[in-house]
Design a protein around this nucleic acid. Structure first.
Length: 819
RNA sequence: GCCGGGGUGGCGGAACUGGUAGACGCGCCGGAUUCAAAAUCCGGUUUCUUCGGAAGUGCGGGUUCGAUUCCCGCCCUCGGUACCA
């Protein structure tokens, strides 16, 4: 007597039990090992997509597995609620961003619950809640006191028609996405965080992130981009300032044939005074995009500034150019160019007919021709006066010393990493807690006046300008210091500010007295962080930075926020990222209605390893559903047939029964490794399917037969419980067990059950498979070799040839080399 | 451009430390069941083949008894590139 698998009603029923019993509600418990599992919180876009389902299922599987290991597991969820899409939706639907956001959050929370995710919903937070961002504002004012935030001019994309600042995403082929106008660069004062003050620590501690993927660590190292070089000053004729350049290749100093400065460099401004015709070139540079990819691929252009610098060793005059590819924000905003030994300088020199002078030759004595292309390897110096014959390190030090002696140069460590500009000229974000007073200057909002609340009931105008910039009731305030009329900052924070510390706030999300209390040090660092690879640099670097800020303000004691990181791949359909604009989305809601959450969860874990991209397949979902129906049917029948839960004695088992036990325990071993060490679930599921196949074929109604079957079915149910929590809960009951499977200990394997007398070995002749033989486990190498050579097929392929070598790989194969 | 991934049957993928290439699943083919269908169950399924075998993991080389795995050089593709999150 078995019932049909009906996931819809079953899942509702079990979710109700979790809800009523507060199964996933956790508190700090010093008697248990804690495990904080965090999936990157959601942007409340309105509906769950398959990327969410995958991300959150991975985190959920790890959480539930860790709980079965007996740990005190916290898994929270919240919303990264500020951001650009809410503003776009506001304009499109004529609603306030707040309303749109809150409605989406409510809707998505329901969808999360339908997926059966083991979240502690009592900890839910939203970053647009003043109770959340109040702390961010407080931290900002504290950092201002410490000198870790400052205001400086920075470049933004300016849409001259809509009269608004555009995000990079809103610039398409150099034009504003709404107006279509050519976007210009505009410089405005903005707040910055001194992440560069932590560059060295952020770099060196990457070495301690053992639980992070190497690819992410490499990307972060390269992003920070530490380099050792020399900063040296050139005298410039008729220019009453020195021109400082930074170079990592001082060994090529004698090959300098021009200097180049960024268009924003003061020297460029001076050059215009002398030669007004240069203004049009500078104007052109303003129209170019400032993002890195555009800078790197655009045509390299320059103009002679009219100034000449003097070479510090040869005394020769070197022209100074203004070039569009020199970054004002890196190094000194000026470079020395050595065309013979730098690809970009070489291209530029060829284009403008500038000298190319070789000063490095290869160490192996081979000859090169720098008129054919740059030679960028390090080598030995030539044409470099007293430095001739030196290698890179010798010349670096010798040149450094001579420049230092002249007082015009010193060694300098530079980072590619730039300070973090956090001002946004947008509405839907956390207000920057600063007041500008005519008398007192820049005044941080005092703690008693925090939070500075963002007005939520606003009307958007069509060009996308921020409503609070038109609201005197928001920006007209009294100066907190002197009480005179003053003006509030109307820019808001970059939304990365909120997502850089939410992981800590989950420890005490409702504490209104302080940002973080002792619970933070119980839960932190996060034991397992799960999220998309697209966050490899920005979010993960900012979060590491923020954690160190919180540490240095005395709130946390750990140095790093995330012990282990799993970066999951994207969900694709027909080889492309699922997106509304491509029309290739799959709605999880419909799938849950049709198959139930367990099927959707099983498929998203089975179709690919977590770190790879996942190709969506409707038929594959069907297959996952089929497997669940299969175990439902078989376990129900087995249980109805009164399966055996009695103990058995290993010595009384038949060979078949022993073989099943062996398979069961091999599977437990493999699946435990996949879950705990490799964090790869598709192979774990495949192993469970294999055991299921074996078990379905295993027909043995004897007492011992039922007992070993029961052991195997129970193991499958327990191992699948983290992945498909609803069906396994029900099957666990059907197998005659009480209580929730979430708290059942993870199965352990018995080495004795896996002992074998005989193994199969592959026999190769010259690396090609020719035979398979069964060999006693105890057989010696010589015995194995003799058996292999005696094999009929092996004889056939080695006949008339001389055996040169026999390689025996114990437990695997024998390779016989003949010729 | 630069930084980091990926490329294996018709498809998703497996092969974990250099040792049986294609586990598991999908699809397809054949069979059982059925009045019929769906569902389910059983068997087969890399390609070529003279049925002995041979070839085969993006392409071209290399190291090795042995390479999907290591090295060199390419191609394609995805993510990031500092104001999408």
């Amino acid at each position: 007597m078995t019932t049909q698998y009906n996931p819809q009603s079953l899942e509702k029923c079990i979710q109700k039990v979790w809800d009523e019993e507060k199964t996933f509600h956790v508190t700090e418990d010093s008697n248990k090992e804690k495990f904080y599992c965090l999936s990157m919180f959601a942007y409340p876009s309105g509906n769950l997509h398959m990327g969410h389902v995958r991300n959150y299922t991975i985190g959920d599987v790890i959480s539930r597995y860790q709980r079965m290991l007996g740990k005190n597991v916290m898994q929270p969820m919240g919303y990264d609620a500020f951001g650009l899409p809410a503003e776009n939706a506001a304009i499109k639907n004529n609603t306030a961003p707040a309303k749109w956001t809150y409605e989406n959050m409510e809707y998505m929370t329901n969808q999360f619950k339908q997926l059966g995710l083991a979240y502690d919903w009592s900890r839910e937070l939203a970053t647009c809640d003043p109770k959340y961002y109040k702390w961010e504002q407080l931290i900002f004012t504290k950092l201002l006191e410490k000198g870790l935030v400052y205001r400086k001019d920075a470049t933004v994309n300016w849409d001259p028609v809509d009269q608004t600042v555009l995000a990079n995403e809103q610039v398409i082929d150099g034009r504003g996405w709404r107006s279509g106008a050519l976007v210009e660069k505009k410089t405005i004062p903005q707040w910055s965080m001194k992440i560069t003050a932590y560059a060295e620590e952020l770099l060196s501690e990457i070495d301690n992130l053992d639980g992070w993927p190497d690819s992410v660590k490499t990307m972060q190292r390269n992003w920070i981009g530490k380099s050792k070089g020399i900063e040296l000053d050139f005298e410039v004729e008729d220019y009453n300032d020195k021109l400082s350049v930074y170079t990592t290749r001082p060994d090529t100093l004698f090959g300098v044939s021009y200097l180049a400065v960024a268009p924003e460099h003061p020297l460029a401004q001076k050059a215009v005074e002398k030669n007004p015709e240069l203004q049009s070139f500078l104007d052109d540079c303003k129209k170019e995009q400032s993002n890195e990819a555009a800078m790197a691929t655009m045509e390299k252009k320059g103009k002679f500034s009219g100034f000449y610098a003097v070479h510090p060793f040869t005394g020769k005059k070197v022209p100074v150019w203004i070039a569009n590819f020199v970054l004002f924000s890196y190094g000194t905003g000026a470079v020395m160019a050595v065309p013979a030994h730098d690809l970009r300088d070489w291209d530029f020199a060829k284009k403008y007919g500038i000298d190319i002078k070789q000063v490095i030759e290869p160490t192996d004595g081979s000859s090169i021709d720098v008129s054919e292309g740059a030679y960028i390897e390090k080598g030995l110096l030539i044409n470099s006066a007293q430095f001739n014959g030196m290698n890179f390190d010798e010349s670096f030090n010798a040149i450094k010393q001579e420049l230092a002696a002249k007082g015009i140069g010193k060694e300098q460590i530079n980072y590619r990493l730039r300070d973090w500009g956090v001002s946004r000229q947008r509405y839907w974000g956390c207000p920057i807690p600063i007041i500008y007073c005519g008398d007192c200057g820049t005044v941080p909002v005092p703690e008693k006046d925090l939070p500075v609340k963002l007005p939520e009931d606003v009307v958007f105008d069509e060009n996308g300008g921020s409503p609070i910039k038109q609201m005197p009731e928001f920006y007209n305030v009294a100066c907190p210091k002197c009480g005179k009329d003053a003006v509030r900052e109307t820019d808001t924070f970059d939304t990365f500010m909120e997502s850089s510390w939410y992981f800590a706030r989950f420890a005490n999300p409702h504490n209104d007295e302080t940002i973080l209390d002792e619970a933070a040090n119980y839960w932190l660092p996060v034991d397992q962080y799960v999220g998309g690879i697209e966050h490899a640099i920005l979010h993960l670097l900012y979060a590491r930075f923020y954690h160190k800020l919180l540490r240095d303000l005395g709130y946390v004691i750990s140095d790093e926020p995330f012990d282990n990181l799993l970066t999951q791949g994207m969900v694709l359909k027909d080889g492309a990222k699922m997106s509304k604009s491509k029309g290739n989305t799959v709605d999880p809601k419909e799938l849950i209605q049709k198959y139930g959450a367990d099927t959707v969860r099983l498929f998203s874990m089975f179709a690919a390893p977590p770190e790879h991209s996942l190709e969506w397949s409707d038929e594959g979902v069907e297959g996952s559903y089929r497997y669940l129906k299969r175990i439902w049917q078989n376990i129900s029948e087995f249980a109805a047939n009164k399966g055996g839960s009695e103990a058995f004695n290993q010595n009384d088992l038949t060979a078949e029964q022993k073989a099943l036990r062996c398979k069961t325990h091999e599977t437990i071993k493999k699946v435990s490794e996949d879950f705990g060490v490799r964090k790869i679930f598709n192979t774990a599921i495949a192993a469970c399917m294999e055991l299921t196949n074996t078990l379905v074929k295993f027909k043995d109604d004897s007492k011992n037969g039922k007992a070993v079957s029961n052991e195997a079915w129970s193991a499958i149910v327990k191992m699948l419980a983290p992945i498909v929590p609803h069906i396994t809960q029900e099957l666990w009951s059907q197998l005659g067990n009480d209580g929730l499977i979430v708290d059942v200990p993870w199965p352990s394997y018995d080495d004795k059950a896996m002992v074998k007398d005989e193994i199969q070995m592959m026999i190769q002749v010259n690396g090609k498979l020719r035979a398979k033989i069964n060999v006693a486990v105890s057989a010696s190498k010589d015995e194995i070799e003799a058996m292999a050579l005696a094999d009929e097929n092996v004889k056939k392929f080695s006949e008339g040839k001389q055996v040169r070598k026999v390689i025996v790989v114990p437990g695997r194969l024998v390779n016989i080399v003949v010729s």
